[in-house]
Simulated scan of single mutants.
Amino acid sequence: MAQIKIYGLRDQLNPIKEQLSQVIHSVMMDVLGLPENKRFHRYFPMGTEDFLFSPDRSANYTIIEISMFEGRSDLSKRELMMQLFSRLNDQLNLSPTDVEITLFETPRNHWGIRGLPGDELGLSYQVEV
């Protein structure tokens, strides 16, 4: 399971939402083995008065927060971040300098979904990758 929050300036984020979602989910499938139908993305387009950042970032500055079940290896998490930086740069011209990624891991029994704790779900994919 993974839920993804994406923050950015409204004028920059809104026009690329669909492409950004495609890139992020393709990386999640390729690196972590998430199924095609398990895409949970939330966008937070913000005005300049609500999204302050360092002057060494451009208006394209984007924050990606990924909440997921714990269990992925450090190597998989590192590969996830590196693939996101690479593909966002190649496909959307988002410089790695303008992308910040944070991973939040939750024990499965701390995540309620479909009426059950996450550790009681019958998942169609592997978490331990």
Rank of each mutant, 00 (worst) to 15 (best):
Q19I: 05
H25M: 02
H25N: 09
I101F: 06
G115Q: 06
S58I: 04
L121T: 06
L32C: 10
L88A: 02
G112Q: 06
Y43H: 09
K38I: 05
I16W: 02
D98M: 03
P117G: 01
E65I: 13
T102N: 10
L52C: 10
P55M: 01
L121G: 03
Y43R: 05
L103E: 05
L94W: 02
Q3E: 08
R108V: 00
G115N: 07
E128M: 07
P35D: 08
P96T: 10
D90N: 15
N60P: 01
R114H: 12
E100W: 11
S95C: 06
R72P: 06
L121R: 12
R72K: 12
S54L: 09
D119A: 06
R10T: 10
Y61I: 03
M28C: 07
T106L: 11
R72A: 08
L80S: 01
G47M: 08
D30C: 07
H41N: 11
I4S: 07
L34M: 13
S26C: 03
Y125N: 05
E120Q: 15
F69W: 04
R57V: 07
F69N: 00
K17S: 10
F51M: 06
R114P: 00
D74G: 14
I101Q: 04
S21R: 09
P117A: 12
P35W: 04
I101T: 04
L75P: 00
Y43W: 15
S95Q: 06
I66G: 03
S21P: 02
M81D: 07
G47Y: 05
Q126N: 12
T48Q: 13
S67P: 00
L9F: 06
Q3T: 13
M1V: 10
L20V: 04
G47L: 11
G122C: 09
L32T: 02
S76R: 12
E100T: 12
G71H: 10
E18D: 14
I101Y: 01
N14R: 14
M46I: 03
S26V: 00
P35E: 08
N60W: 04
G115D: 07
G71V: 09
Q126W: 00
E70S: 15
L32R: 01
H110M: 13
L20N: 04
L123N: 10
L88N: 00
